[in-house]
Design a protein around this nucleic acid. Structure first.
Length: 224
DNA sequence: AGCCACATGATTTTTACTTCA
DNA sequence: GGTGAAGTAAAAATCATGTGG
């Protein structure tokens, strides 16, 4: 740490109010700087937040102030500028966080809607499955042929992923990422960070493996 | 006129770093 | 080379006053 204005140099340069004065008397002499003086100090602060001793002396001379006063002004200015800067940074981060939180909430709602849709579809698929198995009971010979055909097609499509489930998984991954990023912050503001919004097992009751005899697309409504 | 909140000039304390014996 | 005391600069904390509502 070298150079710059310092609090001790004032001892050499003379106390603006005289160190031999009592505290009260010194404070009584405290006067605000003129607009002109402030303007010059501000301008200098914009170019450099720390003053070299020579600049300090020069500025003090120009403004009719003691070098110590200029040094103190710069010290105060730095401290107060820093705290304002922190406030500004906090505000912008808060804004960013609020935006993120709101988009997170929207995604959560969107997901809930999708999960409900999925549930409805699953139910209707289940219903259709029951109906078709009832029909099969009354026609055994034909069902054997169908079973064989289903087995064959299952073999050839091994590894195929139902697009609905795939979509849900993608959504879950998105949510997981968002949750991962936001978790600390959400906990900070008391939002339910631990509300598991991700687990496919928990929230998605649609499962391709729950159709032992049929493929999912056999039940998929054909739409144009 | 008195009170309060805030701004601001000044002082004191703390912290981090350097120099030197 | 490691170490502790002294010196220095800047930050942080605080005080006291000025000012406007």
């Amino acid at each position: 740490m070298e150079s710059g204005e310092d609090q001790f140099s004032a001892l050499d340069e003379g106390d603006p109010f005289g160190f031999d004065l009592g505290l009260k008397e010194r404070n009584e002499r405290k006067r605000r700087f003129s607009e002109e003086q402030i303007k010059s100090l501000e301008m200098m602060f914009e170019t450099q937040t720390k003053l070299e001793p020579r600049k300090k002396l020069q500025l003090a001379r120009e403004l009719g102030l003691q070098p110590r006063q200029v040094a103190i002004w710069f010290q105060n200015k730095r401290a107060r500028w820093k705290s304002k800067q922190l406030e500004r940074e906090y505000s912008s981060m808060r804004l960013e966080y609020d935006k993120l939180l709101s988009s997170f909430e929207n995604l959560k709602k969107e997901k809930q809607v999708l999960v409900k849709q999925l549930q409805k579809l699953t139910e209707s698929l289940e219903k259709q499955r029951e109906e078709s198995s009832n029909e099969g009971e009354s026609d055994n010979g034909d069902s054997k042929g169908k079973e064989a055909a289903v087995k064959q097609s299952r073999g050839s499509d091994a590894g195929f992923v139902c697009p609905v489930v795939q979509e849900q998984q993608v959504e879950d991954t998105k949510m997981e990422r968002l949750n991962y990023v936001n978790q600390d912050e959400i906990e900070l503001v008391g939002a339910p960070a631990s509300t598991s919004l991700t687990s496919t097992e928990q929230e998605c009751c649609f499962d391709c493996t729950s159709f032992p005899d049929q493929q999912w697309w056999e039940f998929w409504p054909m739409t144009e």
